[in-house]
């Protein structure tokens, strides 16, 4: 719960921070780094689920997440190489990574149905947060058209994953 609050807080700060100061907008190299990090975080979460879970639905969902985010991150790396943009680490990426590490630590203490429920609930919450950041900050701030385009596809993908996670969560009840 604490970790989830922390990551929600990180995004809240990020979003309100930019609303307050229009001149502290994120740059394309930072956006690329944030989007890539968001994918890496979900890949790490999926790998943990594959190690711990015994549930068929959860395992299948985790495999879907792993496959999709690896595919999109490969595409993102190809794009930054083509655009000669070097992804730049930043406070948002660091806050995301810190919150995700805490969440994984918390989940590592769980097993069985407790783990499955917590993992899927966090997947719903996490995708929702990323969708919010993509819509309100990352997409509007992106300058390069191809980067914006990739982020828009990323938004549809994350929205799809959120719905998928919601279906899995509903089945577990």
């Amino acid at each position: 719960m604490f970790a989830r609050l922390t990551s929600a807080f990180a995004f809240a700060c990020l979003i309100s921070g930019t609303t307050l100061a229009a001149d502290t907008k994120v740059t394309d190299p930072q956006i690329a780094h944030i989007a890539y990090t968001a994918g890496v975080i979900d890949i790490e979460a999926a790998k943990q689920a594959l190690k711990i879970s015994k549930d068929k639905e959860v395992i299948s969902f985790a495999n879907d997440m792993l496959r999709d985010h690896e595919a999109v991150n490969t595409q993102a790396l190809d794009l930054v190489k083509k655009l000669k943009v070097t992804p730049e680490d930043n406070d948002t990426s660091r806050a995301l990574m810190k919150a995700a590490t805490e969440e994984r630590e918390k989940l590592s203490k769980l097993s069985g149905a407790d783990f499955d429920k917590a993992y899927v609930a966090n997947e719903v919450a996490y995708h929702k947060q990323v969708n919010g950041a993509l819509e309100s900050l990352l997409i509007p701030s992106a300058k390069n058209a191809e980067l914006k385009d990739l982020l828009e596809t990323g938004l549809k993908l994350f929205q799809g994953h959120q719905q998928h996670a919601e279906h899995v969560a509903a089945m577990m009840k």
């Binding site: 879907d64 999709d68 549809k156 993908l157 929205q159 799809g160 994953h161 719905q163 998928h164 279906h167």
Partner: peptide
């Protein structure tokens, strides 16, 4: 729909 992405 798409099973992986129910928004499709």
């Amino acid at each position: 729909t798409c099973r992986f992405h129910p928004n499709m």
